[in-house]
């Protein structure tokens, strides 16, 4: 059984629960026959990838859901082999360039060129072009973005690129200007409540409103997180009644404790200790930006620091 997030994910534009205006626009775009390159951006857990998947289905029909995983080997400039898993259907291909690390440029170039040079052979296909989905586009290196920029112009006739990113700030301007920007905002409280109730109905169980409120407050607009928390809670206490304690993830508690350490004492010895803690966090693969962000938010909670 898959995770609820995946199992109950809407699969067509009509079934999406919120941002109806956006869905309508996507629908008409897909029908227009003049589909542009697109860039979906917004906070994580807002539904970007869900919308991309729904748009693809609208464009190509259910055939797009027949996925296969290919392992491809690319050669880095220093002749090192890079093995990358690529998810693809007959109509689209999906890549996460951060998997290629420093060599994302090579991967992007090779892959796009290859796709761009093959014509769609299926005569019954709804569209002449193939779609390329690039996840985590904001982690693309400068080199890769520059490579992408040229490819986007050159192979417009048989390829469309759909980028997915948390923010546009790390994308170079030429790429932004070649795409139709789609902002997927985080869902509101009521929208999230609807979705959680929908999940509960499908699961099926009844979700007490207090529990829903608690989960939503905790999630900070991240629907994926909310549904995951719901699933975890449901597994721990099947009736979801009574006071619910939503445990923070370990790494978050850890970051907070590190911030507390910093506030409570400032000595060279403490510097060493805090550094050891940071190393511990890093060695658990917590992204450094997240560590800094969460730690800082915690620091702001100490009023005497702010008013000083």
């Amino acid at each position: 059984m898959a995770l609820w997030v995946d199992e109950f994910r809407p699969r067509s534009l009509d079934n999406l629960h919120y941002h109806e205006g956006l869905s309508a626009r996507l629908k008409s775009l897909a029908a227009s026959g003049d589909f542009p390159h697109m860039l979906f951006y917004g906070p994580s857990g807002a539904g970007k990838k869900t919308r991309i998947a729904c748009t693809l289905r609208e464009l190509f029909g259910p055939g797009v859901e027949k996925l296969k995983i290919d392992q491809r080997v690319f050669l880095s400039p220093s002749k090192r082999k890079l093995e990358i898993n690529i998810v693809q259907s007959n109509f689209h291909i999906e890549i996460t360039p951060s998997e290629a690390g420093n060599y994302d440029r090579v991967v992007i170039q090779e892959l796009l060129k290859e796709i761009a040079q093959t014509q769609q052979v299926d005569l019954n296909a709804k569209q002449r072009f193939k779609a390329v989905i690039i996840n985590e586009a904001d982690s693309l290196s400068r080199d890769a973005q520059a490579a992408l920029r040229r490819t986007m112009e050159k192979y417009m006739s048989n390829m469309r690129i759909i980028l997915c990113a948390n923010s546009t700030s790390r994308l170079i301007a030429p790429i932004k200007s070649r795409c139709l920007l789609m902002r997927v905002a985080a869902p509101s409280f009521e929208e999230m409540e609807t979705v959680l109730n929908y999940v509960a109905k499908r699961a099926p169980f009844t979700l007490p409103p207090e529990a829903a409120k608690k989960i939503i407050d905790d999630s900070g607009g991240n629907l994926r997180k909310a549904i995951l928390v719901l699933e975890a809670l449901k597994m721990q206490s099947p009736d979801l009644s009574g006071p619910l304690a939503i445990a923070k993830p370990d790494w978050e508690t850890y970051c907070h404790k590190v911030a507390d350490l910093i506030v409570s004492e400032q000595t060279p010895a403490r510097v060493m200790e805090v550094r050891a803690k940071f190393y511990e966090l890093l060695s658990h693969c917590i992204p450094p930006t997240v560590i800094l962000k969460v730690g800082h938010y915690r620091l702001f909670e100490f009023p005497h620091l702010i008013f000083e």
Binding site: L228, A232, L233, W251
Partner: peptide, 10 residues
């Protein structure tokens, strides 16, 4: 990394 922890533990 960031979001799956709770479910995994459960």
């Amino acid at each position: 990394i960031l979001e799956l922890g709770g479910v995994l533990r459960a």
